[in-house]
Amino acid sequence: MKDTSAFAKAHSEPKKISVAFYNLENLFDTEDDPNTLDDDFTSDGFKNWNGKRYANKLNKLSRVIAKIGHKETDEVPVLLGVAEVENKDVLQSLIATKALKDLGYDVVHYDSPDERGIDVGLLYRKENFQVLESETISVYLESEFGQQDYTRDILHVTGHLMGVKTHILVNHWPSRRSGVEESEPKRIIAAQKNRMIIDRIQEQKPEARIIVMGDFNDGPHNESIKNHLVQKDLYNPMVFLNTRYEGSLNHDFEWYLFDQIILSANFMRLHENPLRYNKSDIYNEHHLTEFRGRFKRNPFRTYAGKRYLGGYSDHFPVYCIFEHHS
């Protein structure tokens, strides 16, 4: 008699997991840090930030996080890189919210020298990702006057993702505030720093699994990403997501895909691959958008200048789906 249970097990569907990135748009607590320029986000500050607004933002963000990739996996993300967080405490408060507190999340975070005090971090589900080591790597920039221009560090976390050793690099590259062309050299330097880390990893293990994620303040086709970061050892699935009608953020009525997740090419291998890339997407469900007015369908943000809107973030999250073959 045929062993149907063994046959079914051998041909069972692989488990799907999601890995995501989300710029949380100024996730500050309400306390004044004398060492950073966080004064706007205090009760006496420009934005009248307070405990009620902070709690509202935490709860809204947590409900979004719990739904990223859920349609494909029936679960929450196993990894979530984040940007624009003030400190480790805000991340601990985020995973302690009602929507996330029972899901087994923990955080990796280091303070970086950014003048506003905003950093990157990594949320991970302990049952799916076991941290082996972590470090923070600074990006040295200079202003036009030859002084050091402080920016966010790169977070490098190494761990076992579904049992597969994986390196995660979380980024938030210099903004375009001073102009696209003027600021581009700084993002190229950040890209080159990532390449240096990747090359160092691959010197020790050529087949290392690497995930580079972040708010790069450049799109998939910009110089920093296309020519300085993504080489033949990396694959950027996000190139297909940015269109005239869709992106992760909108500026002056134009869509951009600054938020990206870039993978080492070995995630694409079709055979004998325990953790295989499946698809990518932007999590831009209707409730995350402006419902009406001239900014309809844009991300529903927390503030528009000084005006409090009470939304989520000025960015949509992005995510990748992987198939785990046990």
Rank of each mutant, 00 (worst) to 15 (best):
L37W: 03
L37Q: 04
L37K: 07
L37H: 06
D38V: 06
D38G: 06
D39N: 06
D39G: 02
D39L: 04
D40Y: 02
D40L: 02
D40W: 01
F41S: 01
T42D: 05
T42V: 06
T42M: 07
T42N: 04
S43V: 11
S43A: 07
S43M: 08
D44N: 13
D44W: 12
G45Q: 12
G45S: 06
F46H: 14
K47P: 04
K47M: 14
N48C: 07
W49V: 15
W49H: 15
W49D: 14
W49E: 14
G51M: 10
G51L: 15
K52T: 13
K52G: 08
R53E: 04
R53G: 07
R53P: 09
Y54N: 11
Y54A: 09
Y54H: 11
Y54P: 08
Y54D: 08
Y54F: 13
A55E: 10
A55K: 09
A55R: 06
A55L: 10
N56M: 03
N56P: 00
N56L: 05
K57N: 02
K57C: 06
K57D: 02
L58I: 08
L58F: 04
N59F: 07
N59Q: 10
K60S: 02
K60N: 10
L61G: 12
L61Y: 15
S62P: 15
R63I: 05
R63D: 01
V64D: 01
V64A: 09
V64G: 05
I65N: 13
I65G: 13
I65M: 15
A66P: 11
A66T: 14
K67G: 04
K67H: 10
K67S: 11
K67I: 09
I68E: 01
G69A: 05
G69I: 10
G69S: 03
G69M: 06
G69F: 04
H70M: 10
K71W: 03
K71T: 09
K71H: 05
E72K: 01
T73R: 00
T73F: 00
T73G: 00
D74M: 06
D74H: 11
D74I: 05
D74A: 12
D74N: 13
E75V: 06
E75D: 12
